[in-house]
Amino acid sequence: MAAPSRKKRRIHALDIIVLAAVITLVGYIAYRVDSVLVYKWDWSAIPSYLFRWDEKTGTLVPNLLIKGLVTTIRIAIWAMVVASILGVILGIARTSERLFPRLVSWAYVEFIRNIPPVPFLFLFYFFISSQIIPLLGIDEFIHSASPGTLTVAEFLFGPANLMTNFVSGMISLSMMSAAYIAEIVRAGIQAVPKGQREAGQTVGLSHFAVMRYVILPQAVERVVPPLAGQFITLIKDSSLVALISIQELSFLAMEIAISEQRFFEVWIFTGIMYFVVCYACALAFGRLERRMGAYRR
């Protein structure tokens, strides 16, 4: 790597003007909020919603905000996994030489992309919870599971009594995200030069083997940066499932804000919690991106 040039580090007059403008603007907004709202800030309620003292066991246990955050992370991770699998299948289908898979995948992607998430969530939530969830047999599983397996299941999917609810929300979220991931995967596959497929065919590889060993490994590298953006969108969009009463961070923050009458404090703090998770995700992907593509030296 080249040494950082001195030019970039030097502060110009314009930089100072911009900085001054930003500080002035922020100061003005703070002043307005302070004078117009006549709001008495009180952050004291927040810590008790993070952790509370459990009288019975005499230990500090996580309270609503932390529980909500855990549910948010849990639902986001599961949705990333499910959406990625679905998205890769749909993305490959969109590049298929056959008309039928291409049409099905195209219809799905356009259907999801052109309906806002809120109507989709409501409609699909009722469909999934009434039709798909009984098929999965989650209730029977919970009733018949041994304590050991139930502990593992609760670690993976959250409390048993909310598990069907959680899975419905997770599937809805995955289905929305899968459409966008499908487009990213399609673009990644199509960006691999045609000669690569031909070279794979001439060394005797089957259609599947060309995809698996030649096209997809090269597509993955192109797909990582836009996929990172999509995953962060997914984490943020997970707040939408509060609408269908999944008890994740936004849902619980709303309840706390109402019951405590501390809207600004609770929402600002919740926003910070989302920021930390999303930014950590962005940093992790940044690292991954730098590690990949080592062969393009």
Binding site: G195, Q196, E198, A199, G204, L205, S206, Y213, V214, Q218
Partner: peptide, 24 residues
């Protein structure tokens, strides 16, 4: 091919072994 079309994500050796391993 005119443009070589080697697999850029595989080493030279892996370029040569992919066909024999996965097709044969």
């Amino acid at each position: 091919f005119q443009q070589f079309n080697l697999f850029p994500h595989l080493s030279v050796l892996e370029n040569c072994t992919l066909g024999p391993m996965k097709a044969r």
